[in-house]
Design a protein around this nucleic acid. Structure first.
Lengths: 156, 156
DNA sequence: ATCCTTATTGCGACAAGGTCGCAGCAAGGA
DNA sequence: TCCTTGCTGCGACCTTGTCGCAATAAGGAT
């Protein structure tokens, strides 16, 4: 993944332009993030970063930095719930979230984009961002009829 | 809300058919749930139930009962994250949320609905619900540079 | 290469969401 | 009313996320 280098550069640029510093923890979190798939939760990064000796609290302080640097984006799942997704190398898209396995599929639809622009015009609304999530059951889960086992939740 | 009675009946029926009991706490949680809007989080119910003398732990044990009774549905937002929604299907509408005044405008768009159905077909996805929110600035706020109200962030 | 300023980190504490085992309580059929 | 046993309240504990503070270390200046 050459995305990492690109992101690192982007981070460095962002930091430089604000008197901010490129530290080891920041680099570690960046790497953990880039090593993951497009979507992830802070907890996942927290785990990986911890292995690199980065403290939990730092991870939560660094993620917003990456966001400000335009490397990841914080996406709202539902009021109060968030997850992150990569921005570098990805264009805008919306999400299909499976209620069974939790899998996230992305899709892009110019038709929706334009219709949404039309709606905004219609209501004299100036859009700054939008969030579109379709919940349901993905192909795999529906196929595996009996429903696959839930991934272990919370407990341990 | 006559929905409540209907739900209560449904609950009673479900319980009766399984040697389960209709207790005061269960009734209280049912009422708290029905008093809320379509989507809600356990925390919300927890608060209301507490006011009725129902313990936190009980709420988390009762919600799954309501789910089994077909009164609410537990929906997965993302791995490890859940929220509930009323199963009494209500017509869905989408929203335009103003970032300045917080106003919410509803809109319905057949074009989006159909495009979204097409996307689902395309990905072998079976939709159960969707959530579409466009954030931005409404006509009024853009006209008069009205006072904005900062969203409280972070702290709790 | 060394010094200095100060952005950033690690730490420990804390708040809220959520789960568990257990003993006592109470729904509701006998 | 009695009795079985499904439920509940309680309190301990785990997880996610945030905060204040003192120590640390980037990285420009020297």
């Amino acid at each position: 993944m050459k995305h990492l280098e690109k992101a690192a550069e982007q981070l460095a640029g962002h930091l430089a332009g604000g008197g901010l510093r490129l530290t080891r923890p920041r680099r570690a979190v960046l790497e953990a993030v880039m090593a993951l798939d497009r979507h992830f939760e802070p907890a996942e990064i927290e785990k990986r970063a911890a292995a690199a000796g980065v403290h939990r609290a730092s991870v939560y302080r660094i993620l917003p930095v990456l966001e400000a640097a335009g490397i990841v984006r914080r996406v709202r799942d539902h009021p109060g719930r968030w997850h992150y997704e990569h921005v570098v190398g990805h264009q805008h898209h919306d999400h299909l979230v499976c209620e069974r396995c939790g899998g996230v599929t992305e899709f892009a639809s110019p038709a929706i984009e334009s219709e949404q622009a039309r709606q905004c015009r219609l209501h004299g609304f100036t859009e700054t961002s939008h969030h579109f999530v379709i919940r349901g059951v993905c192909r795999q889960c529906r196929a595996g009829a009996a429903g696959r086992k839930e991934k272990t939740r919370g407990r341990r």
